[in-house]
Computed example of a mutant assay.
Amino acid sequence: MTHVLYTANLASVVPPLVERHPGVRFTLIDGDEFRDEYRDADILWRSWVIPELFDQLMGECLDLKWLHVTSAGFDWAGGPNFDRRIAEGLLSSRSSTAYPTAIAEYVIAAIHLHARRFLHFADAQSRREWSSGLARDVAGSTLLVYGTGSIGRFTAERAEALGMTVIGVNRTGSAAEGFVRTEPFSSSSALLPEADWVVLAMPVTPENRGFLGAAEFAAMRDDAVLINVGRGALIVEESLVEAMTSGAIAGAVLDVFEQEPLPADSPLWTLPNTLLTPHTSYSSDGNPQRLAEDFSENLGRFLSGRPLLGVMSQPQLGY
């Protein structure tokens, strides 16, 4: 019988899966200590678990064939044994629709936040000031999305429905669904002057760490808005502070930071026309059901020998 281990914060959605997959044994990872009953697991369905226990699971569950993580990326699922098992060929996949759905909605909300000048009006309200302001059209504007994976595609689909022109950037410039065109990362800086909205929705790799710095901010339009739902390390924070305080760009919505939690003395807290959220763009009440559906679909594929969805395609780059 196929044996699935699952972490505690997935427990509420497991009962329907037990009924749907009667030939599978599901075992809750209960507490922070390794138990012998985990050793013969074939599959690990992971949300939150302490790093030490995860590394032990990777090291001692020798029959493990497949790891499915609930995150949008794999970079947080690390450790020596994880890296070794991936190198040895352990199958690893992520949820394809759960968090990308929520994050794409966050991006669209962030665009409207600035387009409709809600930060301006909230500030005026706090002063009891009747202050008007000119909004900007979203329809007809250009959205530049760095990352054409599931988050980027879900964002592009929603942006296109609003009448936006959506340009994508990925490593090779390969075509991606939902984008009017895609360009390679190596030449992407030339696209910045075209964009009303710049969205970072890609993982950190050696080639893109800190890529959005002084030169890139200088290339952006002074009415452009930056939205980061990728990773904080994609941005040179000192350059962002300078760009925002000098008015080189018009605004920002930031959900991820190089250091989390963001220190209280960070200058990002007080940037003008900027909204910070504490790495919660993925959070939504529909996630549990979507996580269960994603895992159930892949479990059915695994049991029948079909290709899985959301598989880690380039382990050397961490995605």
Rank of each mutant, 00 (worst) to 15 (best):
V169G: 00
T148S: 03
A156Q: 01
V169F: 07
S141I: 05
Y146T: 01
E157A: 13
V145K: 11
V166L: 08
A161N: 02
T142M: 02
L143F: 07
S150H: 07
G168N: 04
E157Q: 15
I167W: 09
G168Y: 11
L162R: 10
A161F: 01
A159F: 02
R171H: 13
A161E: 01
N170I: 11
Y146V: 04
G173T: 12
I167H: 07
E160P: 00
F154Q: 11
V145G: 12
T142N: 00
Y146R: 03
A139R: 13
E160S: 15
V145P: 09
G147W: 00
V166S: 01
G147M: 11
E160G: 09
L143W: 02
V169Y: 06
T148C: 09
V169I: 15
A159C: 06
R153H: 04
R158I: 01
G173S: 14
T142S: 07
I151E: 08
F154E: 12
R171A: 15
N170D: 12
V145T: 15
E157M: 11
V166G: 02
L143E: 02
R158Q: 02
G163K: 09
L162C: 05
L143R: 06
G149F: 06
T172W: 04
G147T: 01
G152E: 01
A159Q: 02
T148Y: 01
R171Q: 15
S150V: 00
G140K: 01
I167F: 07
S141C: 05
M164R: 04
G152C: 00
A139H: 12
G140C: 04
G147S: 05
E157I: 01
M164L: 14
A159I: 05
T142L: 03
N170Y: 14
G149T: 08
S141E: 05
V166Q: 03
G163T: 09
V138N: 04
G173N: 13
S150L: 03
G149W: 06
G152T: 00
G140I: 00
A139C: 13
G147P: 09
A156K: 03
T172F: 10
G173I: 14
L143Q: 06
G140W: 07
N170Q: 10
R153V: 12
A161M: 06
G149L: 10
V138K: 06
T165K: 15
R171L: 15
T148I: 10
I167Y: 05
V169N: 08
I151W: 10
G140D: 06
V145Q: 07
F154R: 14
G163F: 02
G168H: 02
G152K: 00
A139D: 14
A139E: 12
L143N: 10
V169M: 09
E160T: 15
A159S: 11
G168C: 01
R153D: 10
L162Y: 02
V138D: 03
G168W: 02
E157V: 01
T165D: 13
R171W: 07
G163H: 05
L144W: 10
V138C: 04
G168L: 06
T165W: 00
I167G: 03
G149H: 07
R158Y: 11
T155H: 04
G149D: 09
T142C: 05
R158N: 09
A159P: 00
G168S: 05
N170G: 11
R153E: 09
G149P: 08
G168P: 04
G152W: 04
G173Q: 14
L144V: 11
S150C: 00
N170K: 08
G173P: 12
G173L: 12
